[in-house]
Design a binder for these strands. Structure first.
Lengths: 230, 230
DNA sequence: GCAAAAGTGTTTTGGCTACACCCATGG
DNA sequence: CCATGGGTGTAGCCAAAACACTTTTGC
């Protein structure tokens, strides 16, 4: 056992809560679970759990997500720590909030969720326990701001996607209509997509070309400090 | 004593660390203290302390700052939580980092600091303990990004200030030269300053007009979602 | 042949940048 | 009268926004 220098200080419970954003056709969604323990058992809640001694917060967030959904090793970003004294009526708990982006139909988990977990359209989500509503709102704001500097959302789409799908995604995140031509021009300027020879024939008679995210190009541009504003 | 619902979970020490930015004539500075307890006693460190049971993190940050410097009730912003397992060799500690902006010559504390505390020019700061260097770097990045959306820095200046001082401040934060005329034009467009009838005569023979931040105008524009990019 | 979505360029506009000279004053 | 910092306006450029028609093909 390591020497304990700060014996007299108060210790607290530290939790992580995950806002998992998903994209499904035209809708931005969030993954929620029905809480199966007290207090507030049976109410909708974010996916969360407690930090353990042998892990850091990023690891805790991934572990919690994996345990509750089967989703593994995805990119998660810490964004704020909530510490109001009575935020959790069960016991004094400080919670570090993370958000993540995934494709709702990812084969990673075959779109199958554990019992009690469910995707909700962002604007039709139920009331959540504690300060979780606040967390979701702040996560949305972060996500919006992030679109202004990073090519967000390739995690939210399948590997191959159409321009229209990408535009729908940006429109859901930013909650506004975008001009089709301007959007395509800007995305092409970023020069981080490969246009494939395949077409998606499900959306129209003409069919629309599929694109794939080119991670190599993206990383090169990232190094150069490129700005990915859409 | 409240019911404890989560008895079996690990508890941890939660600290706050404060990056206090100050502005002094032409230099952006950061306030550091010589650590007077083990481990790493005698080395330079951020101002920090542990969260207590009866306070939230914002309160803890202000209490810690007040205890170590006498500075009271200033605006502090939480920006990241550090949780690497061995970040503090003394004991497993998670630390929530805050940054704040103040005028180095504020009468609030008469510019007098407690023993062991000292202002350092940002680019001449000493090596810090633990992950504190990392924290300072992230805080600087936040501060820079913040200039693009909020009229930062009125906290960093005295109540009355000249355009030149404001420009110096932005130049130190962004670490670049700005064009005098463009800067003044942009600031005037924001329309959140009152030009006073007074002049500051210390900087030149002609003297330069003093300005004051108009908080009312600022808040009105803030409500409307105005963007304060400089 | 028509409905439904895909694909494609140009023009306009507003904001950002670059830039140089006169002013007021104390010494 | 001169040295020092203060104060002021404009022209050119580029990036963002607005905008409409043709193509394809399954039905």
């Amino acid at each position: 056992m390591k020497l304990q220098y700060y014996q007299k200080e108060d210790q607290v419970l530290l939790a992580v809560d995950c806002i998992i954003f998903g994209f499904d056709k035209k809708d931005l969604k969030v993954l929620l679970v029905k809480r199966d323990f007290e207090p507030e058992k049976g109410k909708w809640s974010l996916i969360g759990g407690f930090l353990k001694r042998n892990e850091n917060l990023d690891e805790a967030a991934n572990r919690v997500l994996n345990t509750l959904t089967g989703i593994k090793d995805i990119y998660m970003e810490q964004f704020y720590t909530y510490s109001e004294i009575d935020r959790d009526p069960g016991q004094r708990t400080i919670s570090v909030a993370y958000f993540a982006l995934i494709d709702v139909h990812s084969h990673q988990f075959d779109g199958i969720l554990i019992d009690g977990a469910q995707w909700f359209k962002l604007n039709k989500r139920p009331q959540l326990i504690f300060d979780h509503n606040q967390m979701v709102q702040k996560a949305i704001n972060r996500l919006r701001r992030k679109t202004q500097t990073k090519p967000i959302g390739f995690e939210l789409l399948p590997e191959k996607f159409t321009m229209r799908q990408l535009q729908n995604l940006y429109e859901s995140i930013l909650d506004c209509k975008l001009d089709k031509r301007n959007f395509i021009n800007k995305v092409n300027q970023l020069d981080i997509l490969d246009k494939l020879d395949e077409k998606d024939m499900t959306s129209s008679r003409k069919g629309s070309f599929l694109y794939r995210f080119n991670e190599k190009k993206y990383k090169e541009k990232l190094e150069e400090g490129f700005n990915f504003k859409i």
